[in-house]
Amino acid sequence: MRIIVPIKQVPNTNDVKIDPKTGTLIREGVDSIVNPEDLNAIEAALELRERLGGEVIALSMGPPQAADALKEVVAMGADEAYLLTDRALAGADTLATAYCLSRAITKLGDFDLIVCGRQAIDGDTAQVGPQMAEFLKVPQVTYACKLDVVEDSVVVERHLEDGFETVKARMPALVTVMREANRPRYPSMAGIRRACTEDVVHRWVATDFDAEPWRIGFDGSPTWVKRTFTPPPKAPGKRLEGTPRDVAKDLLKTFTEKNLL
């Protein structure tokens, strides 16, 4: 099995706080982490490798410091890591990002499976996975909460709003996993040593993976951010006083008025 796991370094949005006075985002002191569901993807890939042999290759696109994210997954057990880092890649939307990752994957050679996290916590788009699958012309299965390899196919339990379905896709294929899929392992001492003592992260600039200049970065992105703003604060709430029964009656009245029952 040759498994590719694209990952993203994201700000830990858990730490993101809002300045109560200005209503803007405080980004200082916010750690960069590996996107949580990407860790589930790494875990899924490592479990498959342990069972079926092969290798797990982590791939990321981002600024030079995104190498830290790749080191972390190497410490968890990934065999190799590649970072696509080039100023020309800046400003990429999901399509331009998926383009670069797919070009790099093509450059890396044949693969059996690509496992991604369902979505990243900074953007929540869930688009890069399917867009890579389209670039690479391989089947995709998204929202996986369980996956297994049976002969030449990947069998995935796919989460739906009202149940689940089991989908079988011929490999090579791309799967996006949810946090329910597994519990990511922690980096081990041996893994950390490997991540730090060797130059494990290979850095590629756009020409290293044959990216066409007009398809990358801002120029290659069909969508642009026009503006960002903080959502307006809600009207102040109301305190309900009295006995539990009074409170319950008050609440029920409101629920009825708002047609919530």
Binding site: L25, I121, D122, G123, W224, V225, K226, T228, T230, P231
Partner: peptide
């Protein structure tokens, strides 16, 4: 004009697809 939340709803972004 496509408006969506980002950063877990902490900010909103308006996105365009101009070309």
């Amino acid at each position: 004009l496509q408006t969506r939340p980002a950063f877990g709803g902490n900010i909103m972004a308006t996105i365009l697809c101009p070309r």
